[in-house]
Design a protein around this nucleic acid. Structure first.
Lengths: 362, 362
DNA sequence: TGCTTGGATGGAACCGCTTCCACGGGGTGA
DNA sequence: TCACCCCGTGGAAGCGGTTCCATCCAAGCA
């Protein structure tokens, strides 16, 4: 491998001059620059990233800490991040957090100069101590899909989203509305499910509907757990006519339960999810949509801004009701009833009406 | 930030000794080791990755070059990679290739000591020159989902897969079988579509069925292009009774076309895809399944082996027919006809029978 | 007792780059 | 004409580790 010294020797200049050419620095005469560039070309020289990092203290790489496996939505966020960062000159170093301890370990080992310049933490809530450690190490942090005191973040108002979902069901005429969400103290410290539940309860209270504790079910964040919870709900003496699931992932479990119980959706049961993952579009699931890819992209932008010396503000992204074909007025009322077409047609219509965003961007 | 020198000073030893402790090297007395560890603890010291990389020539990170956006299947492979690498002590640096030039640039800039120790190239075909450059730079390379002369790879036999798909259709009694695949010279140099087509033609030839050039359609690797191609096929005077799509992605486009044309699947048209992406499972698509996550994981293993000084062999993964509910005997024949149940039920049944693999692994 | 031997240790050299400082020389203004 | 500036440039001093070599000391042996 050739080094900067060999380039300098070949060009007949000093190493400082070569470095200046490499860094597009000022004050190099045209002819000298030309000679250096020729030498670089001739030797097929590429500067050593490690040496540069050691010397400058900046690595040119951004760490992304995310629970890659847990949620399909995380993949879409990640896509937004890589897409935005591809043209930035920064490399993306991925830290897949499959178990909570890994998150601690990753955050700890990254709180070190010379590893990454900035960190995007997706969907995980770092502790105050971790943030402080990162701060003292000079690592800039932006959170995506999570809001923590004292950190820049791209976030949504989960509680408002919970209200949005529930009010949609109320408007359709439902009164027996259940909620299926995550256990309160999940392994990763996710809090969105609880916030969405609060929105759900606020909306019910606003409509003057009494709380019904049996209608609130929590379980591990998995489709099969949601299926079991929904099955229990549907077996109640007074089963709900609508279920709000805290995520699309779980809403799919609810749909499974309905199918197994032979209950038509949306004829006898309305189901609404949250997130608007790709599968929701394919399945025609009504949901509270949040811009997943955009959240990653905006997070990346905030971090780039901060790396450039700016002091970006946190950013709230809008949630939007996305009505598809799993919600309708409860049986016995005819308002807004969505006809129950063969499902494949519906599914495919959904696919065609909503091409994936990045296809449109090409 | 504390350095190795400050640790050495606090412990009252030389830097060499601290380094020896850090690297679990031999010949450090128990008491000295203890003093050093205490100093490390007291200073909250973490060694600088950049300095270490410069000094040793190894970075402790593995690059993954992949077209993250192009194919859903790539995401699943990537999952396998990160999953396997999470416990290896290597970091994963992602190079998202959205346009072919980016692939060149990534491969070029990575062919440098001090950036990554090894490289996993997913679904992209590096040129011989690029491989050579990487070799001289001392960067180990393993290919996933691609086979190139002189490089270790995890691959499948696409041609055999094409045969598998076509023979399934032949067995059901189809004779008018069409193919929808990629343009021959796509932007990324993907060759799998053509290999699958060769398998398709070999199977037809084996069954004594004459070639029918109009039945072979190629287009850009996008769902809408596949939809258009399928629509043209279905509008022929003698339309096919079955379509083999070179990927699930494209098979979904074919399904769209059938729905738009009001053609029942599998009643009047059988559709088979290739890959077995998650969506195929959800949609009940019959397909040629390849172990996507496993391909990434095995690729990572081969690379780790090579980094450990081994000389791993390439690895062929098995393809398997995955019959779901989009294929049946052609209209007029009754053998094996799959009843056309309401689709949602079918879809959900599919979901329940095949939980995602990683859920089982928790 | 004196010499050899080997394990534990300190520290300099080095990895390849950036950056700052010093220096030479031509141009400018007094 | 001289002093001063400034531009272009060379090169040394880090950056923070690893590693090799020299050194020291204690134990073993004749």
């Amino acid at each position: 491998m050739s080094t900067i010294a060999s380039v300098a020797a070949l060009a007949g200049v000093g190493v400082g001059t070569v470095s200046r050419v490499l860094n597009h620095s000022s004050s190099v005469s045209g002819s000298t620059r030309m000679r250096v560039l020729e030498a670089i070309e001739a030797l097929d020289y590429e500067p050593s990233a490690a040496a540069r990092a050691l010397s400058t203290g900046r690595t040119g790489s951004i760490g992304v800490v995310a629970p890659f496996l847990t949620e399909p939505s995380v993949v879409e966020r990640l896509r937004g991040v890589t897409h935005r960062l591809a043209s930035s000159g920064y490399q993306v170093t991925l830290f897949d957090v499959e178990r909570p301890e890994q998150g601690d370990a990753a955050l700890r080992s990254l709180a070190v100069k010379g590893r990454v310049d900035g960190l995007l933490v997706v969907s995980l809530p770092p502790t105050g101590a971790q943030l402080e450690r990162l701060e003292t190490a000079g690592v800039l942090v932006v959170l995506v899909d999570r809001r923590v005191e004292g950190a820049t973040a791209v976030f949504t108002d989960d509680e408002a989203g919970g209200r949005l979902a529930t009010e949609h069901l109320l408007r359709l005429g439902h009164e027996r509305i259940a909620f299926v969400g995550d256990t309160e103290n999940g392994p990763f410290g996710f809090t969105s499910s609880e916030a969405r539940r609060r929105g759900y309860e606020a909306a019910l209270a606003g409509a003057g509907i009494a709380k019904h504790p049996e209608y609130v079910r929590r379980g591990p964040h998995r489709r099969d757990a949601a299926r079991v919870a929904a099955a229990e709900l549907l077996a109640l003496a007074a089963p709900p006519t609508a279920i709000f699931a805290a995520s699309d992932h779980q809403a799919l479990g609810v749909l499974e339960a309905a199918t197994l119980a032979g209950i038509d959706v949306p004829g006898r049961l309305s189901v609404i999810g949250f997130d608007d993952i790709e599968l929701a579009r394919y399945c025609g699931l009504t949901t509270v949509a949040q811009p997943l890819e955009a959240s990653g992209a905006r997070g990346a932008e905030l971090l780039l801004d901060a790396l450039g010396g700016g002091a970006p503000d946190s950013l709230e992204l809008r949630l939007e009701l996305q009505v598809r074909s799993t919600t309708a007025s409860p049986a016995g009322r005819s308002t807004n009833a969505v006809e129950s077409r063969p499902v494949r047609a519906r599914l495919l219509n959904g696919m065609m009406r909503e091409p994936k965003q990045y296809e449109g961007e090409r």
